[in-house]
């Protein structure tokens, strides 16, 4: 793969929950080092779509290619893609029976087969990066929501992924903890990580995103740069959405 080819290419992705047509032909192309923000009202399919990108949800029609590998039903292929795609969830989903350090080193040790010493060294660097080095030996239940989410980011980064997916990473946080998570995400974007972010954080979208997509009823309604999106939206649906959240 050359550095110029897009790292994510999703074409005409359709998904049905029984009769309910959740994704009605979503297209998305993401370049390397690009930060794309998905916005939209709840139920618009943005979370479902981001979860198809690492096969936590399957899709019935269309094609998704991640870093040159097509997502198929082959489990080995899915696991290979998941190794390259980190994900951060709304509810953190840290493993409560493991310490912070064990949470972070679990996948590098068992999936990447790193020696424990190397995994722990990388983990400590990441914890320093997300600014919670001193919590390494605590359990997730002893941390605040913001700290937990930063551990979750470190856990995903420990696999040294090429892409990071964020599924509403700040929606379950108390307002005063949102900022500490956004700071980490911002510095991650500045370091050149390819990111797809589902969020309602207007400030983050405006300042960090390279491109913003508005989704509604399972389709992409508008796709634009942040300036265009916020100052000069083309679609009526976008104007309505912005009038409700700003």
């Amino acid at each position: 793969m050359t550095e110029t080819t897009p790292i994510i290419v999703a074409t005409d992705v359709h998904k049905w929950y029984d009769a309910f047509h959740v994704l009605q032909g979503v297209d998305l192309t993401v370049d390397r080092q690009e930060v794309v923000v998905l916005m939209g009202p709840s139920g618009s399919g943005k979370s479902t779509f981001i979860r198809t990108l690492n096969a936590l949800e399957d899709y019935q029609q269309g094609q998704i290619i991640i870093d040159g590998m097509e997502l198929s039903h082959d489990l080995g292929n899915i696991e290979a893609i998941r190794r390259e795609v980190g994900m951060v969830f709304q509810q953190f989903n840290l493993f409560p029976h493991l310490t912070v350090l064990q949470n972070i080193t679990l996948a590098p040790i068992w999936v990447r087969r790193w020696p424990r010493a190397k995994a722990e060294e990388v983990a400590m660097q990441l914890l320093e990066q997300v600014d919670i080095l001193e919590q390494a030996h605590k359990y997730p239940g002893q941390l605040s929501g913001g700290q937990q989410q930063r551990v979750a980011i470190a856990r995903a980064l420990a696999m040294q992924p090429k892409i990071m997916l964020f599924d509403e990473p700040t929606s379950a946080l108390d307002p005063e903890m949102v900022k500490e998570v956004l700071v980490v995400m911002r510095s991650l974007a500045e370091s050149g990580m390819t990111m797809v972010v589902v969020t309602h954080e207007v400030g983050f979208a405006r300042e960090v995103a390279h491109r913003i997509l508005l989704m509604d009823q399972g389709t992409v309604v508008e796709e634009a740069t942040p300036e265009q999106f916020f100052q000069n939206p083309q679609e009526d649906r976008t104007k309505l959405f912005l009038s409700q959240i700003l």
Partner: peptide, 15 residues
């Protein structure tokens, strides 16, 4: 969510 988080890290079903 626990299972999803583990899967998202690339762990196979046995792990």
């Amino acid at each position: 969510g626990q299972i999803e988080a583990a899967k998202a890290l690339g762990l196979n079903p046995v792990l």
